[in-house]
Computed example of a mutant assay.
Amino acid sequence: MTNKQTLIAAIKAKPGIRTPELADETGIDNPRSYIALEIDRGEILVEKVASELGGRQINTYRINPDNPPDETLNPRQRVVKARAAAPATEAAFSAELSSRGDLHISDGRKTVQLSPSQTADLIAYLDRINVDQVMKAAGVA
């Protein structure tokens, strides 16, 4: 199980778990860094509460029941209606990878910007699939 999956399982088992408890139970230092994307997407909800020892507030975590995280770490597919406008041509497609690891992909109408960690996740995912086989099955040579 990955660190992210371990953290999600711990949060699911104990809704409202605090950061120090989450780190102790999983043995993962700085757990928030592993689940930051799920927090940004609203899949894991964070609430600040007063520390039992006083001082600054700490985070508690719980799974959003209306939008739970994908524990298999597979990409989620969504079906959307195509725009009525003319389709983008291949010439309009561009992809840029910065030296910092940021990836920008554009089809002329929309742009996707990935952080270095998201870029690494995308590359790891693409490494796990046989792109040639998928493209052949899709009818693209």
Score class of each variant (00 low, 15 high):
3 N>A: 06
4 K>E: 03
6 T>N: 08
6 T>P: 05
8 I>P: 00
9 A>I: 02
10 A>K: 01
10 A>Q: 04
17 I>H: 06
17 I>S: 01
18 R>C: 12
18 R>A: 15
19 T>M: 06
20 P>S: 10
21 E>Q: 04
25 E>C: 13
25 E>W: 12
27 G>R: 00
27 G>N: 00
27 G>E: 03
30 N>V: 04
30 N>P: 03
31 P>N: 05
31 P>I: 04
32 R>C: 04
40 D>I: 01
41 R>Y: 04
46 V>N: 02
47 E>G: 10
47 E>H: 12
47 E>A: 11
48 K>F: 10
48 K>I: 11
48 K>L: 11
49 V>I: 11
51 S>G: 07
53 L>Y: 15
53 L>V: 13
54 G>C: 00
54 G>W: 02
54 G>M: 00
55 G>T: 05
56 R>G: 11
56 R>M: 08
58 I>H: 06
58 I>R: 08
63 I>E: 02
63 I>K: 02
63 I>W: 05
64 N>H: 00
66 D>C: 07
66 D>R: 10
67 N>M: 05
67 N>V: 03
71 E>H: 09
71 E>D: 08
71 E>A: 06
72 T>H: 12
74 N>A: 15
76 R>E: 14
79 V>L: 15
80 V>E: 14
80 V>M: 15
80 V>H: 15
80 V>G: 15
81 K>G: 14
82 A>S: 13
83 R>N: 14
84 A>C: 12
85 A>V: 09
85 A>L: 10
85 A>Q: 10
87 P>T: 05
91 A>H: 05
92 A>V: 05
93 F>S: 00
95 A>E: 10
96 E>V: 14
98 S>K: 08
99 S>F: 12
99 S>Q: 12
102 D>S: 15
102 D>Q: 14
103 L>R: 10
103 L>M: 11
104 H>E: 14
105 I>R: 00
106 S>F: 04
107 D>I: 10
107 D>W: 06
107 D>H: 03
107 D>K: 05
108 G>S: 00
108 G>Y: 07
109 R>C: 12
113 Q>N: 13
113 Q>G: 12
115 S>Q: 08
116 P>Y: 06
117 S>P: 11
119 T>Y: 03
120 A>W: 06
121 D>K: 14
121 D>A: 12
124 A>E: 05
124 A>K: 09
128 R>P: 06
129 I>L: 03
131 V>G: 07
132 D>A: 08
133 Q>K: 15
133 Q>H: 09
135 M>V: 04
136 K>Y: 10
136 K>C: 01
137 A>I: 01
138 A>I: 04
138 A>C: 01
139 G>H: 01
139 G>F: 01
139 G>I: 03
139 G>D: 03
139 G>L: 03
